[in-house]
Design a protein around this nucleic acid. Structure first.
Lengths: 222, 222
DNA sequence: GGAAACCCCCAGAATTTTTAAGGATTTTCT
DNA sequence: AGAAAATCCTTAAAAATTCTGGGGGTTTCC
């Protein structure tokens, strides 16, 4: 009987216990599943670092948003994922996220290229079991809402460069027009040019920025 | 008992009978599944056109390569998909393909944005059942090998414009360097510039075109 | 050996992007 | 309501990028 080691990191302790219970009771031919847990960024980081010189985890299950203890700065699970890819490239990485935010999904798929991505409202015992088996045997596993976001992205023929993406992102965060230049290395008039260009790409000519953001959201860019 | 109508179009008659048998025996709560079949492009097209004014199919299951009778020109299922999207937008569309060719998958995901994509070697009775249920209830469904191609694409941060893609595509098809200019509206020296640029993007500087193609394939572009 | 194909580099031309400046319109705030 | 601020649009010159044609070197294949 081989052992399948899973490390789950989520700052809600009770939900994590739920995962642990479900995961450890999965029937998986030839495998005995053991779940370690951590509920802070720091604790998780430590366990991953420790694993480098001992038993590697087969799967790291990372919550996208994590709070450090006694802080109100959220650490992103994304950072932890990037770190883990370097330290323990053998371990498969899967993310769990509360929101099916296109921008976040796209970003994580690029930066970490995880073996799984689960939107939390998609998770139930059955999908969790499917996910674990798929991630081990035949990755990747993307849950239904994640797939919807991925589909939007793949169906798009609009190509945006980094600056365009930054403009869209900051606009969507409510950044005022005149403050954009502080975030993006371009002159105000260039930003306007690009905004106009973006509006024509998304078919929202002569409409305001809100229309642009909505169109970009629908197409999966934000 | 509602009826779920599926139209399967594949030029190999026997495999299609296999699909029909499996599909019509699926247990799907509240649905009675009926499968129509066609084994040529023309026959399929006709059935789709006829369906406009009668019962719409719930799912169109299209083989990517189709041969017309008495011709040796293959018609692409992609064309049929594009047509069907216009004529019967209510019908869900799923593709079946023999090869898990990244270029083809990317192209179809853009042009048709199908509700399902199945690589044939991934298909067995269970996945076919999963696929149908997912496509009806909660699309999209992508089979394992399709997901692998999609994953490669999503994980990439290299952005190529149309001309770059054309160059890669034609190179991968074995087009000779000096014939590239016949396919791509660029001067020979521009093509060289772009090829050099591509090689640096893919980290194959000072290597030959083969190395470039292999790198591009691995990253999911071709 | 010789022709054809491939690969590399250069410099001017052509194109696209950026920038600054000026003005019109709308929004916000008092 | 009126002033100030922010947004939106246009234009024209500067800057950056891309395209192109040419020269020349190396490899490949008759």
């Amino acid at each position: 009987m081989k052992t399948l080691r899973i490390l789950a990191i989520d700052d809600h302790e009770m939900t994590m216990l739920g995962y642990k219970f479900i995961l450890e009771n999965i029937e998986f031919e030839g495998y005995d599943i053991i779940v370690d847990t951590a509920n802070t960024y720091e604790a998780g980081k430590k366990l991953i670092e420790d694993s480098v010189n001992s038993f590697k985890y087969d799967i790291l299950l990372l919550d996208v948003q994590l709070f450090a203890p006694n802080e109100n700065q959220p650490h992103s699970g994304e950072d932890l994922g990037i770190l883990a890819r370097k330290l323990v490239p053998q371990s498969k990485i899967a993310f769990m996220s509360s929101f099916s935010d296109n921008f976040r999904i796209n970003s994580i798929l690029k930066s970490v290229d995880p073996d799984g991505y689960l939107v939390k409202t998609d998770i139930d015992p059955k999908t969790l079991e499917d996910a674990v088996k798929t991630i081990v045997l035949n990755p990747p596993y993307y849950s239904s809402k994640a797939l919807t976001a991925i589909r939007k992205k793949m169906a798009n023929d609009i190509e945006l460069d980094e600056k365009d993406k930054q403009i869209l992102y900051h606009l969507s965060m409510g950044t005022k027009n005149k403050d954009l230049e502080k975030h993006i290395r371009l002159s105000p008039s260039s930003i306007e040019n690009r905004k106009r260009h973006l509006k024509s790409l998304f078919g929202t000519e002569n409409e305001n920025d809100m229309a642009l953001i909505i169109a970009a959201k629908n197409r999966g860019f934000i």
